[in-house]
């Protein structure tokens, strides 16, 4: 309980460190915050060319929204994913890059990974706002889904923060973590139906039937991935404009809570040894 109290008293520090990250990020660039849009736009361009024109993996039109624009459909899944990946990546390095601070000053260490979550989250908020404007221009009626969207953004942030907490500690004790996780994230992204529709997997998997004589199909394994559920929920809200399936939402929330609690416990246990291990 006292830990919660201490963390609460550090919220001002958290806000200041987050501001430091945000302000430092695009300082002395001409385009400033616009740079945070360039990365998703560039990936959007590449994936659109490869998947919509060359491989022709077009998703079904949004139901009931009627939207049928691959780049927009892509962004609805890509923006949540790239937020998650960015939080994991920068959160993981947050303790190492602030080693000097950890060895010289006492403060609740948890603010370091959390402040990177805040800074990346700020970028994400900006990107999502732009996406919302694009969606409205394309004719999607998103207003009723906004509260749900905001809630799910919070759930994803909690999930990403939990993963970042665990990995930031792991990275102090084993520096391999950052290299390994970089590769794993890439594999994870392609195992998540972000740039191609899940229908393709469903069809192929139904065709192949159960694996090794069991009733478990590839599709079932696919659905175990929490990011698959998150992407499905975000697409339902943003692109299809309908309520997401309740089991998807429950799965996301349960995963986020469990991962965050585990991350917190791991962090709490190792927090006091950080100054020596760095």
């Amino acid at each position: 309980m006292s830990y919660v109290k201490e963390a609460l008293s550090a919220r001002e520090l958290l806000a200041n460190l987050t501001m430091r990250e945000i302000r430092g990020q695009y300082k002395r660039t001409i385009f400033g915050q616009l740079w945070s849009l360039v990365n998703p736009l560039a990936s959007m361009l590449v994936y659109t060319i490869v998947f919509a024109f060359i491989l022709r993996a077009t998703p079904p039109p949004g139901n009931p929204s009627g939207l049928d624009i691959y780049p927009v459909w892509l962004l609805c899944g890509l923006l949540p994913w790239s937020f998650f990946a960015a939080v994991v990546n920068s959160g993981m390095g947050s303790l190492l890059s602030n080693a000097g601070l950890i060895q010289k000053v006492y403060f609740p260490r948890i603010v370091l990974p959390l402040s990177t979550v805040g800074a990346v989250g700020f970028n994400w908020l900006f990107e999502m706002t732009v996406l919302l404007v694009v969606l409205v221009l394309c004719g999607a009626w998103i207003l009723p889904w906004l509260p749900g969207l905001i809630l799910m953004m919070i759930v994803l942030t909690v999930f990403a923060a939990g993963v970042a907490l665990m990995l930031s500690v792991a990275n102090v004790f084993f520096r391999d973590t950052q290299h390994l996780v970089g590769i794993l994230l890439q594999i994870w992204m392609f195992l998540t139906p972000i740039i191609y529709p899940i229908d393709i997997i469903q069809q192929r998997s139904a065709h192949a039937g159960g694996l090794l004589g069991t009733p478990v199909t590839v599709y079932d394994l696919y659905r175990l991935n929490p990011m698959e559920r998150f992407v499905a929920v975000f697409r339902d809200l943003l692109y299809n404009n309908r309520w997401p399936a309740w089991d998807d939402v429950t799965y996301c929330v349960a995963f986020a809570v469990i991962v965050f609690v585990v991350g917190l416990v791991v962090f709490r246990r190792k927090e006091h040894d950080l100054a020596e291990a760095l």
């Binding site: 001002e12 520090l13 200041n16 460190l17 501001m19 430091r20 302000r23 430092g24 300082k27 002395r28 000097g100 601070l101 010289k104 000053v105 006492y106 403060f107």
Partner: peptide, 26 residues
């Protein structure tokens, strides 16, 4: 604790901004 001064300054931020930042770290 004054073990090392100025740790936690962000080089790109102004002195004034760093006073607030460092103050909250302390």
């Amino acid at each position: 604790a004054l073990l090392e001064v100025g740790s936690g300054f962000h080089p790109e931020l102004s002195g004034r901004e760093n006073i607030y930042l460092n103050g909250s770290i302390l």
